[in-house]
Each structure stands twice: as C-alpha cells, then as structure tokens.
Design a protein around this nucleic acid. Structure first.
Lengths: 181, 181
DNA sequence: GAAGATACGGAGTTCTCACTCCGGTTGTCA
DNA sequence: TGACAACCGGAGTGAGAACTCCGTATCTTC
C-alpha cells in the first residue's frame, strides 16, 4: 500500500531515534523532554517528528516493542510440562525486568491507555492468561483469579519493586498468596 | 515565638485554601494547576502563596494532615486483644481509603520524598510497625517482614486498587500471602 | 554526475504553569 | 471612626516543553 521505501539515511535515523527513546524512557518515563531524546540520537527534533507523529506515539512504539518480547517469552513456556514452575518463573522474570524499565511500568499502570488496546499488549495479556490457566489447571495457582486480575497484581508488584529495589522476599509474599487455596 | 496572630480574613482564607487543595489533590494528585486550587477556594493565586511558600509545601500540608489521621486510627487499635484482626482490619481500611485519594498514593509512593521524613509520616510508620509486630507475636502474620517492607506492600496494594477498583479479592491474595509461614 | 525528490536541523511559535508584584481593600485598635 | 497595618486579587513574568517551518544538505536515479 504505502511503503515508498525509506531513504537510507532516514532508515538509519529512525533506528537511532528508537534506540535513544528506549534508553531515555526506560530511565525517566514519559516525562523526558523530546528534545533530549533527539539530542541523544544525534538528530534534530524535526526528524523525530517526521518519523513519529507525537511524543506519545514514540513512547507507544517503544513499549509495544518490549511487550512483544514478553509475549514471545511467554509462548516459549506455554507448553512446559511443569506449568506451575513455568508460571512462577515467568511472573518473577517479568517483574524483575519491567521494574527496571520505567516506560513499561507507566504503560502497564495506565488504566485505560491506548497502549493496552495495542495488539502487542493484548497478545501479552492473552499469553499471560494462557500461562495462568495452565498453572491453575494443575492446582499450582489459586482458581479465583483471572488474567485481568493478574495484570493488576503485576502492576502492584512493580510498584513494590520500584519502591524497594531488591525486594525479592516481598514478591515472594505475593507468590505465596497466589499459591494459597 | 512567631505567632503574630493571623487576621480573621487571613485565617478564613487559609482554611479555604487547605480544603480546596485537599479536594483537588485527592482527585488529580500533584499535577493539578495551582491556579485551579485558588479558583476553587475563591481566592487569588497570591493568597495561596502568602500562606504556603510553594505548591509542593501545600501538598505536603494536605498529606501530613491525612497521615496524622491514619496514625491516630492505628493507636486506637494498638491495644486490641486480637492483634491479628486489628492488623488486617487496619491494613484493609488504609488501602481502601488511600486508594481513593491520589495525593496519598503519590506521597506514599515517593521513594525518598521529604513527606516521608515529616514527623507525621514517621509516626505513621512507627504505628504501623507496632501493629505489625503485635500481630507477628501471636503468629497472625509471617515473621520475615518488617515495617519498611509493609510500607512497600501498601504502595503495591494501592497500585492494584487504583488499577482495578473493587479489587477486594486481590487484596485478599496479598493478605493470604502475609499469613503464610 | 546532474536533476529532482527526499530528508535534515534547529530556531521559532505557542501553550501551560509556577510564582511575583503592586494598587486597592479590609480588618483592627485606639 | 479614622488611620495604619495586614491582606487581597489577578495581571504579569519567565521558564520549560511540544510541535512546526523552511532553507539547506543528502540520497537516488537516469
């Protein structure tokens, strides 16, 4: 349809912007000034806007990229023959990684952000739910929660982790709660 | 020392500003424009600054007021002869109330905000710890967490609650985790 | 290797917001 | 009740940040 093939320098700059944005958003979240990202990428502000219609759109692009990674990781675990372990491993890993990435924390915490509607985020939720249900089927996780609940709990765990880095034992409190019943 | 006794109108305006700020901050957090608060209080921006040196200071004043209430509530429960129930009741109540108050959520979530150093916030933590230790002494709460951990867990629970209103069953997951061991 | 399309940079524009300043008003006290 | 100090409102100021515009530079194609 509309793929006039980007010019070589344009393609290169787009990649640089994305990389700079990923790094900057991970540290400071959405509040980082766009001009800083441009400077970090060695590019003018105009160039950023040529590739992404708004700062928000750039943020989304970064977040979606990361969520897709999480989705892939979940799919790799989905056929594990120890669903309980698979679930807890995944949960723990996501918490640990995401808590060091402020962009992800903010995006997941958005109650009704458009990020959630993005196909990648939806896939994340779907995979998370699949992993959860398999673990519930073998009795490794309590039955009275669903995928949506789990997403909320992840948001909570991220808040804890951000508040008290190296809080593995606190996440364990939550995990123990999930095992119960 | 320095109490030249406020003039009657000044005293009235100060109270109005505080009330307006409490309401506005509870809904939108620190991000609400100060001019909005002034208008809500039926007062000019200058008047707000005459009573509080900065928007941040006003925010602190509001938060401290609320934290003191929590402190009082904790002290009322501290001599209960069912320390486990007292603890869980208090925990649940604080979560429910605070989750509807964005100012409190933001203040508690501040990793190293000066609010935390404020005497009221410190008293909150002390009372929380006392309640916790009594519950631990009778085996109602697992022994491997301390008051500081608990504050982190409260921050997490608040994030959950904000994300999924009416999430009583999710808080229960956390409480079950606290009972374990 | 030259023409023409495409992309670039960064100064400029516009908006929002915290905070200040001062001419006017109101409370207080003799 | 009058005079003085305390207090008030809100226009004004300056800083910061998102986004635009256009003269210039770079890539592509023939």
């Amino acid at each position: 349809m509309e793929k006039p093939a980007l010019r070589a320098d344009a393609r290169r700059n787009r990649a640089r912007v994305l990389a700079a944005a990923e790094a900057a958003f991970a540290v400071d979240g959405l509040s980082v000034p766009l001009d800083d990202i441009a400077r970090l990428a060695g590019v003018g502000a105009g160039t950023v806007y040529r590739h992404f219609p708004s700062k928000e759109a750039l943020f989304q692009a970064v977040v979606v990229e990361r969520l897709e990674q999480y989705g892939v990781e979940a799919q790799e675990l989905i056929d594990s023959d120890v669903p309980g372990e698979a679930f807890y491993d995944y949960f723990t890993r996501v918490i640990e990684q995401a808590s060091r990435n402020r962009a992800i924390c903010e995006a997941l915490g958005e109650t009704s952000g458009s990020a959630y509607k993005a196909e990648a985020a939806e896939r994340f939720r779907v995979n998370l739910t699949a992993l959860l249900e398999r673990a519930q089927a073998v009795g490794a996780v309590r039955a009275d929660i669903d995928g949506e609940d789990l997403r909320a709990l992840i948001v909570g765990a991220l808040a804890v982790e951000r508040f008290t880095p190296d809080s593995r034992h606190l996440v364990r409190v939550l995990l123990d709660g999930l095992r119960k019943v």
